[in-house]
């Protein structure tokens, strides 16, 4: 299945990412609870892409494992990167004025979570949520 791209350049785009993720999650037959978890995680990561990464994109795709369908979302930015990933994942850590719960919370809300970050390249975060 082909991935759908959404640029993230402003607040309205964060809402668009949420809507796109919701649509694909419904199509992949995720339960209401799992839809809400994935949409919330996507909302956090999209806002981080916007605020900390200086903008970027989200790519949303329905995927299939051996037995079940799922949704994969990839967030990309060419921002400053995350110097200390473990620290960034710590609850309560924020370099700005947030609650510092977004990144760690997003990780807990999905089934697979992967960060690749480099000051020269920016940050790419991939998450997957499987249908139960």
């Amino acid at each position: 299945m082909t991935a759908q791209e959404q640029a993230i350049a402003g607040d309205a785009d964060v809402v668009r990412v949420r809507q796109l993720v919701r649509t694909v999650a419904v199509a992949a037959r995720l339960s209401l609870v799992d839809q809400t978890k994935l949409v919330t995680a996507a909302s956090e990561l999209a806002r981080n892409t916007l605020i900390h990464g200086g903008g970027g994109s989200a790519s949303v795709e329905q995927v299939t494992s051996a037995v079940k369908p799922g949704v994969r979302v990839v967030f990309r930015d060419k921002g400053p990167g995350i110097a200390d990933i473990a620290l960034a994942l710590t609850d309560g850590y924020t370099s700005g004025s947030g609650m510092g719960l977004g990144l760690g919370g997003a990780k807990r809300l999905v089934d697979q979570f992967d960060i690749v970050s480099d000051p020269a390249e920016g940050t790419t975060i991939t998450v997957v949520k499987w249908a139960r």
């Binding site: 609870v33 809400t36 978890k37 919330t40 956090e44 609850d91 609650m99 719960l101 977004g102 760690g104 919370g105 807990r108 809300l109």
Partner: peptide, 8 residues
């Protein structure tokens, strides 16, 4: 459930 997972 999402509020709990986020740690809010």
């Amino acid at each position: 459930q999402t509020i709990v997972a986020l740690g809010i």
